[in-house]
Nucleic acid binder design. Structure first.
Length: 567
RNA sequence: GACUCGGUAGCUCAGCAGGAUAGAGCAACGGCCUUCUAAGCCGUCGGUCGGGGGUUCGAAUCCCUUCCGAGUCGCCA
């Protein structure tokens, strides 16, 4: 709502000034740094420049024009301080407007930004035969949260888990299994044993480069449909997926499609043919490439031995998705280090003559670092996500036992708190920043954390549960109070925050907003007793609390956190 | 070497389509529970916004340069 004011004031004021001076004038409506200066602000320096009139004169003119804009009825006062014109809203009227708006909406913040449009999101996409690591967490929860945010914006969202179930690393695991693996041991604990084999392969390959050659052979035969290898592949895929589903269940993550790389195995030839037909494919040093210009390296489509590569499969997947889902946009939630790959992917699509290259977005995110260095599976330094989530849940349970030992369903709630703490710890940071793996920080329950949001929501819930409401009369004058109005102003920004998070593909924008809202509420809570005797005052406060709680809960849901009622 | 991303308080980060005295949390220190959940609230301490130039009425924000860290750079994904 506050944003609507900004937009409409800007529009009205510009139009009025354009008419008055008969020239293009563009102004800015922003929020002052300090709340005590006002609610909205118009800096006039740029107008002084374009009109070449003294500043005091411009200030007077803009002040005068401001009294004529459409929203002027909501203004309480217009001051000026050194080139800034500050508008203070009539808090009572503005509050009534926001509250009515809230009450008349089923799902506050829901908008029609993406009405009728489809977006495919490729996220999580773990490489099978390896445990689900902390490294996969980022893609999984950023993608999941973006999906939720996009749905809130009215998009039809197709969630795709593009499993890494093909490629030479996979062939390495098969080689190791067949040559020195033990079937019984592997069957006991498939995923963990298989990754051991993979790590072992890499160690041995360092001493014996022939192994890499063997793995490439296996991969080739697998691609051709060798029965033994395909059976093994099916077994490994199934066991891995079983393992991952445990984590997805814990996180509440779901997908519409689990079509991984293997699914596109028979769809790549068509891509190769099309590239050939369009004369884009060039033979270079024995391999087939597409030249992409001087600024970036060419895309390797086929290896010397004829086997396909990552980008070939991604192209096949891309066209399959385009033809199946008819997406308006496709998002790839994949780490920073693959930036070049997606630049190449887009460039190839563009070269092929399709116009949707610009609708392909690499939603990159920072690396998970350990001691400032990239984590790597090859060295076996893997941190299993399941262990992290369990650790966080155990710590939550300890906390509950200390703070609220009589709580019912302790274990379940502890899991919700622990998992959400890990999720929030990730999403609160802007996604492209690198991420230092630090368990202590993840399960720290004080300050800017998931539990802080849950705690705030639970506190409100607790009051609402015990509240006796005897009236529906509101006293909007209460919103003259700073601590009331601060909360309300923030509530009015919810929809804008969601749209901003959508435009920047950044759940962290929503996360920071929720922290701020929770903080404002907790300050309010310390100052005001809610369940007072005066029934109109009580009802007004309860109304404010309910709005706050609804937004906190909805926001947490969008981030992929669990909403709990007690803790 | 080329290209990309980052460098803001002791630590983790926000702010960056230029705007008013640079903001949070953690840590440290000091307060606040006979009243709705203290996983909270209030306060104190803490900053040459990596360095140097430039553009501008105004720069953490834009441009150039330099230092530091990370990532990527044809047969892995």
């Amino acid at each position: 709502m506050l944003n609507h004011f900004k937009i409409s004031i800007k529009k009205d004021l510009e139009q009025q000034l354009n008419t008055r001076f008969n020239q293009e004038i563009s102004i800015i409506v922003e929020e002052p740094k300090k709340a005590e200066l006002g609610d909205l602000s118009v800096p006039v320096f740029s107008i002084v420049k374009t009109l070449r009139k003294p500043l005091p004169q411009i200030v007077d003119i803009v002040k005068e024009e401001l009294t004529k804009v459409g929203d002027a009825a909501y203004f309480n006062k217009i001051d000026s301080v050194s080139g800034f014109i500050n508008i203070t809203l009539n808090r009572t009227k503005f509050s009534e407007l926001v509250i009515n708006d809230f009450d008349n909406t089923d799902s506050y913040g829901q908008n029609e930004f993406g009405q009728g449009k489809t977006i495919c999101i490729d996220y999580s996409s773990p490489n099978i035969a390896k445990p689900f690591s902390i490294g996969h967490l980022r893609s999984t929860i950023i993608g999941h949260s973006l999906g939720n945010i996009l749905e809130k914006c009215g998009y039809n969202v197709v969630r795709i888990n593009h499993l890494g179930d093909f490629g030479t690393p996979f062939a390495k695991t098969i080689y190791a299994y067949l040559n020195w693996g033990n079937q019984e041991i592997v069957e006991q604990d498939p995923v963990n044993e298989l990754v051991k084999l993979y790590v072992e392969f890499n160690e041995k390959a360092k001493l014996d480069p022939n192994l890499d050659e063997e793995a490439r052979k296996i991969f080739n035969e697998l691609e051709q449909g060798n029965e033994t290898y395909v059976k093994l592949w099916e077994y490994i895929r199934e066991e891995s997926l079983k393992d991952y589903m445990k984590v997805y269940d814990l996180l509440g993550v779901r997908f519409d499609s689990y079509n991984g790389e293997a699914f596109y195995n028979d769809k790549m030839q068509a891509i190769v043919d099309e590239l050939k037909e369009k004369k884009l494919l060039i033979k270079d040093q024995g391999a087939m490439i597409v030249d992409l210009g001087d600024d970036i390296p060419p895309a390797l489509i086929q290896k010397t031995d004829g086997a396909t590569l990552y980008i070939t499969r991604d192209l096949a997947a891309l066209f399959y998705r385009k033809n199946t889902y008819h997406f308006d946009e496709v998002l790839y939630v994949v780490g920073n280090e693959q930036k070049l790959h997606f630049t190449q992917l887009k460039r190839v699509v563009d070269k092929m003559g399709y116009d949707f290259a610009e609708n392909i977005h690499h939603i990159n995110f920072g690396l998970v670092l350990q001691d400032g260095k990239k984590m790597s599976t090859r060295k076996g330094k893997i941190v299993k996500l399941e262990d992290v989530l369990n650790e966080a849940s155990t710590m939550s349970l300890d906390y509950i036992n200390e703070k609220n030992p009589g709580l019912e369903n302790k274990e379940e709630i502890a899991t919700h708190i622990g998992v959400s703490a890990v999720v929030f710890n990730d999403l609160k940071n802007y996604r492209t920043n690198d991420f230092e793996f630090n368990l202590e920080e993840m399960v720290n329950f004080a300050g800017q954390t998931g539990p802080y949001l849950q705690y705030t929501s639970v506190r409100i819930q607790s009051i609402l549960d015990s509240a006796l409401n005897t009236t529906n009369k509101m006293n909007y004058d209460l919103f003259e109070g700073e601590h009331y109005f601060d909360i309300l102003k923030n509530i009015s920004l919810y929809e804008d925050i969601i749209i901003k998070a959508r435009l920047e593909y950044a759940p962290s924008i929503l996360a920071k907003y929720l922290l701020n809202l929770a903080s404002l509420f907790n300050s309010f809570y310390a100052k005001e007793r809610v369940l007072v005797d005066d029934e109109v005052e009580r009802n007004t406060k309860l109304h404010l609390l309910k709005m706050t709680k609804d937004i906190l809960n909805d926001g947490m849901r969008l981030l992929g956190m669990q909403v709990i009622l007690k803790m």
